[in-house]
């Protein structure tokens, strides 16, 4: 019975996180300015990371944790590079 509860709530949580990613994608596509798109991207990768952690719980494996950590790392570097680019027009000074 309780296994069903966990399975159901994991699916529901993945649905909610998917909706959150859609919201972030809306902001990336809509803009209106470049900084709004970068905030959208920032939200998108954090939500994707959380989605991977819920996948990991659902499948009972720790492999997804590594993927989540990688997404967090690459997303952070990507956002910083984009913000730096907006600030000066070049990434490395």
């Amino acid at each position: 019975m309780s296994t069903l509860v966990l399975a159901w709530s994991l699916t529901a949580a993945q649905f909610l996180l998917g909706l959150a990613m859609l919201c972030a994608t809306f902001r990336i596509l809509r803009g209106p300015r470049a900084q709004d798109r970068v905030v959208g991207f920032d939200t998108l990768y954090v939500t994707a990371m959380l989605l991977l952690v819920t996948f990991g719980i659902g499948l009972g494996t720790a492999i997804y944790f590594e993927a989540a950590l990688l997404i967090a790392l690459l997303g952070f570097v990507g956002t910083v590079a984009l913000a730096k680019f907006l600030l000066r027009g070049e990434v490395i000074e």
Partner: peptide, 16 residues
């Protein structure tokens, strides 16, 4: 998990 996902969705909804 449900609580965390709901909070994240509210945050992303605020972005819109």
């Amino acid at each position: 998990v449900l609580l965390g996902a709901t909070i994240t969705l509210i945050g992303a909804f605020g972005l819109v």
